[in-house]
């Protein structure tokens, strides 16, 4: 294959993914008027998503806090500005590192699992069975999952912020010797509500994107067990790109 043909193939693939996602968003939006998400399924999805991702979000946030504290400390020790460590830490973690790392982990844990689950239902003809029973898979399967991911990602980000703060304070104390009291004061004094809200908006956007992408890839599965594997792969890749693009857009708009 020549380079031109390969480039063309890649562009066509990209168009296919974007087109499929757009059509899928269209059918999800149509299902929203009037909103007809299955209530029982939505509660179950909320429960499953929350339970499944809580441990991984806590661990990720804790380490993300630690990593941010180390990096901020490198600057702080250089300029001997110990009272700024809480501010630098809070700014980096709440706005950027926290939502980004938690979002990527959430995509891996919940998004990938969701694609695999829907994909398995597709290849074992369970989706067709639903259609025969006159149950719309969008109302019954997709909307509850998207709602669950949107809500849970937002809530988990709040919990994640708490654990990131703990991880940052412990690391700053253990490695740089910053008194937790000084850290806390600098943190509460300089970190604004807007930093926290900025992270929260990002988390909600990531949750929505992961929900839409993972459901779309799951329902598109073809070709048995290898097909499920490929769909999970494609889903997490597109979710990751989506997370970065949304992060950029929100950062640019929120100033």
């Amino acid at each position: 294959m020549t380079a031109v043909a390969r480039l063309g193939g890649a562009v066509l693939d990209l168009c296919r993914v974007v087109g499929a996602l757009t059509l899928f968003c269209g059918s999800v939006l149509r299902a929203l008027i009037p909103p007809r998400a299955d209530r029982v399924e939505t509660w179950r999805a909320l429960h499953r998503v929350g339970v499944r991702s809580l441990p991984i979000v806590i661990v990720t946030a804790f380490f993300a806090g630690g990593i941010a504290a180390i990096q901020v400390s490198t600057y702080v020790t250089k300029f001997r500005a110990y009272e700024a460590v809480g501010w630098g830490f809070g700014f980096v973690t709440f706005r950027e590192l926290g939502p980004l790392l938690v979002g990527l982990m959430f995509s891996g844990r919940v998004g990938a699992h969701n694609t695999a689950e829907l994909g398995t239902m597709k290849v074992t003809e369970q989706i067709d069975a639903l259609r025969i029973l006159a149950i719309d898979p969008i109302h019954f399967l997709v909307l509850p999952r998207i709602i669950a991911m949107l809500v849970m990602m937002t809530l988990l980000n709040v919990i994640g912020d708490v654990f990131a703060l703990a991880g940052g304070m412990i690391t700053a104390y253990a490695m740089v010797g910053v008194d937790p009291y000084v850290f806390w004061n600098s943190f509460t004094e300089y970190v604004m509500l807007i930093d926290f809200v900025n992270g929260l908006i990002k988390a909600a956007a990531f949750g929505l994107a992961i929900g839409v992408v993972s459901c779309s890839f799951g329902l598109d599965v073809r070709g048995g067990a290898p097909g499920v594997g490929r769909a999970v792969n494609g889903g997490v890749v597109v979710s990751a790109v989506g997370i970065f693009v949304l992060d950029y857009l929100i950062t640019a708009v929120m100033q």
């Binding site: 991984i56 661990v59 990720t60 990527l104 982990m105 891996g108 844990r109 990938a112 699992h113 694609t115 695999a116 689950e117 994909g119 398995t120 290849v123 074992t124 048995g224 067990a225 290898p226 097909g227 499920v228 594997g229 999970v232 792969n233 997490v236």
Partner: peptide, 19 residues
């Protein structure tokens, strides 16, 4: 197991290696 097992394995891979 079948396609379920493959899905579970890919999920486990991305979570464990990201962590």
């Amino acid at each position: 197991g079948g396609s379920e097992g493959v899905g579970e394995a890919t999920t486990q891979a991305v979570v464990a290696s990201s962590l």
